[in-house]
Design a protein around this nucleic acid. Structure first.
Lengths: 92, 92
DNA sequence: TATTGTTTTGACAGAGTCATCAAAAATAGT
DNA sequence: ACTATTTTTGATGACTCTGTCAAAACAATA
């Protein structure tokens, strides 16, 4: 499973956007975005629609990547993660 | 979706166990467990097997409740949560 | 090599979260 | 009502996390 940071960096570089531009759109310092891309900081959900816009990607795709990263980092090695996700799906 | 805290409290009371006993098993103060049950603090994954043992419930059940609560609190109102969970399931 | 633009690093401070502890409040049992 | 037990509350200090900032490192290009 690849990290959210790596994903963002890959897309940003494909778009030839400097950290500066994306960070400005997110209204954060470039250093923070740099850290997010290297997984030293975590992104917030509020960033998702903004990233979708500036990176020109479907919001759904970005959000899915975000969800995967949150699950990975918070619930990563649980024994019954699969069952837990299935059960969670049922009650949504 | 009911909270992890409420779930634990319900089971603990069904077993007629005081906070004191369960907290001792978890090696935490009763006040912390009290707060966890009222959702003022969050449980950690390390607590899951211990809770399973002392509350005499399958670890799987407890872990699923835990997973649901983490997803609810971290990803609760995302637009594409369902899709995100489905995609996450695929790569597990 | 010098210049310009980009990215990373680390120190810092503020906010939030944590466990600990003692005291207060609530509950049960006599 | 009294006592013992359980549960909740709030103050405290330690710790973690987050954003800001300036400086350093790195990259590209003239």
């Amino acid at each position: 499973m690849k990290s959210f940071g790596e994903y963002i960096r890959r897309v940003r570089e494909k778009r030839d956007l400097p950290l500066r531009k994306v960070a400005a759109a997110l209204d954060i310092d470039t250093s923070i975005l740099s850290k997010i891309e290297r997984n030293e900081r975590v992104a917030t959900k509020e960033m998702i629609p903004i990233l979708a816009e500036i990176l020109d990607r479907p919001e759904k795709e970005i959000e899915i990547e975000f969800i995967q990263s949150v699950i990975e980092s918070n619930l990563g090695n649980l024994k019954y993660l699969k069952d837990g996700l299935k059960e969670t799906l049922k009650i949504l």
